[in-house]
């Protein structure tokens, strides 16, 4: 099996050639760095994406000055978990103060990936 991929690990966007016979024998070509290899493999096996979004902060009134805190997953999350993560995080209210890197939601869906704040407020 073969697939053309474009690496999204960095802005260079290497054009990857993935070829495999089974899931244990995947060859990635065209990558300029080791991250391309990892990306290529994952994209074939179980595609993952980093999710970024914003959450409401606690105590922010629904009036004019809603303050939102930006968040991300601390590692790429398997795609099938993304929609339910978004639903969850939009209903969360983060108590202030919050620090960059603070875990807001641990081990999302048992994946080991955490949701962390990307800004201190």
């Amino acid at each position: 099996m073969e697939r053309q991929l474009i690496c999204i690990s960095c802005p260079i966007g290497c054009r990857l050639q993935a070829s495999w016979t089974d899931e244990t024998d995947i060859t990635i070509e065209g990558n300029q760095c080791p991250r391309g290899e990892i990306y290529g493999r994952e994209e074939v096996l179980a595609p993952k994406r980093v999710v970024t979004a914003t959450c409401m902060t606690a105590g922010s009134p629904m009036g004019t000055e809603v303050r939102r805190v930006s968040v991300k997953t601390d590692a790429p999350l398997p795609k099938e978990h993304i929609d339910s993560l978004l639903d969850t995080l939009y209903s969360m209210k983060i108590p202030l103060p919050v620090e960059t890197g603070q875990v807001l939601l641990a081990n999302i869906g048992g994946t080991g990936v955490n949701l962390v704040a990307t800004r201190s407020m």
Binding site: C10, V50, T52, T54, K72, T100, T118, R119
Partner: peptide, 25 residues
């Protein structure tokens, strides 16, 4: 950067991938 909450920043400068607010911070 404050509104660019997506990731992809800092790979050259910090050698790691940051979101806009993290880069700014």
């Amino acid at each position: 950067l404050n509104q660019c909450i997506h990731n992809g920043f800092g790979l050259h400068h910090f050698k790691e991938e940051l979101t806009g607010p993290e880069y700014a911070e």
